[in-house]
Amino acid sequence: MKALIRADASVQIGMGHRVRCQALVVALQALGWQCQFVVHRDCAAFSELNDRLIDDECEFLILAMEADLVILDHYQYQASDIEKVYQQQTNLFVLDDMNDRGAFPARWVLNPLHERYSSRVITPLTGPQFALLRPEFSAPAEPIIAPPEKLLITLGGTDPLMLTLGILQSLQRHAFPVEKIQVLLGKNAANSEAVKTFSEQYGIQLAQGVVEVRPFMANARLAIAAAGGTLFELACMRVPTVFAQVADNQTRSLEEHVPLGWCQCVRFDDLPEAKRSDQIETLVHYVLLAWSDSAWRQASRVTAQSLVDGQGSVRVAQIIHNALVA
């Protein structure tokens, strides 16, 4: 059985679509599926060797007819575009975050939030139990030997608003203990050279392009993170977090999770660049308060633990496999 995955990644788009689709691909491949990404040529710099590059979406429609399953994770596709794909391939699996594209047909829609879809979706898969996390998060939690001690800073695969450096500079001005900071940079993170230079100057631990992030999250007392798929990873790892919203599609996730009490958020995506430095100060203020509030952090860990079990990718792959193969 062959699955085609239509997803792009770039500095502007970010890596989130690619990462969560790859998590599902790994789970499908474990069940014997052949999987291939279909990527627009404009995003070739972020593609892999086995990807199929296309120049326009008409090419993808032709490819869709030849597959047994199409996985679509792309905001460019509005309801009418999804309809065209469905006409070519009814075994259509759509990944969604905002539920703002109107009614469209699909065999499955996955949204890790509690959203409602029209009757044109045959099987909606909604809620955090379906969050597509990488295989490393499906392993049982290891016993805690020592209390986590780090402030983890991870602003996504590309850090599109280049917030990391400003956050580090603010923390240093506020005399936050730099030996407690752990920075994770994506392989394609913007402004990474400046971040690395600053980190070396002040002795801040930094890792870039790491394959497995779970060990870093396991050692995090608190995190500053972008609110994409990382939100569900941090919930799975029970890490209290102050989220920096860097894209509009993160709005619904934060609207659902912040009221639960395990995280906070500061919005950046709706601000002009000139005002981001003031907003960074607001974020760091929240971080300093949370770092000292052990009662809040403990309650946050309990809440987060109840939300995401890390089995979403395996769970979803099995649903697809049972419907189309078993």
Rank of each mutant, 00 (worst) to 15 (best):
K2S: 02
K2V: 00
A3I: 03
L4C: 00
L4Q: 02
I5K: 01
A9D: 04
S10T: 03
M15N: 09
G16D: 01
H17F: 11
V19A: 09
R20L: 04
C21K: 01
A27E: 02
L31F: 00
G32W: 08
W33N: 03
Q36P: 05
V39N: 00
A45M: 12
N50D: 15
L53N: 05
D55C: 09
F60S: 03
M65Y: 00
L69I: 04
V70H: 08
I71E: 03
L72D: 00
D73P: 02
H74W: 07
Y77T: 12
Q78I: 12
D81R: 14
I82K: 06
K84C: 13
Y86W: 13
Q87R: 15
Q89R: 11
T90I: 07
N91T: 11
L92H: 09
F93L: 10
M98K: 06
P105V: 11
L110M: 01
N111H: 00
P112N: 03
P112T: 05
H114I: 14
H114Y: 13
H114F: 13
Y117V: 04
P124G: 00
T126R: 09
P128E: 06
F130R: 03
E136M: 06
E136R: 07
P140K: 08
P140H: 05
E142Y: 14
E142V: 14
P147N: 11
P148F: 05
E149Q: 13
K150S: 11
L151C: 02
T154E: 05
H174R: 12
F176H: 02
P177G: 04
E179H: 11
G186M: 06
G186F: 03
K187E: 15
N188A: 14
A189C: 02
S192A: 13
T197E: 12
F198C: 10
S199G: 08
S199Y: 10
Q208W: 08
G209P: 04
E212S: 15
M217I: 07
M217Y: 13
A220E: 01
L234Q: 08
A235F: 12
A235Y: 09
C236R: 15
R238D: 07
T241L: 02
T241S: 04
V242I: 15
A244H: 03
A244D: 01
Q245G: 04
Q250K: 08
S253Y: 08
E256L: 09
H257T: 09
P259L: 15
L260A: 12
L260D: 10
G261K: 03
G261I: 05
W262N: 00
C265Q: 15
F268D: 04
L271N: 00
P272H: 01
Q279N: 10
E281C: 09
L283R: 05
H285M: 10
L288A: 00
L289M: 08
W296S: 10
W296N: 07
Q298E: 14
A299L: 09
S300F: 14
V302D: 14
S313P: 14
V316L: 14
V316G: 02
A323Y: 14
V325P: 02
A326M: 06
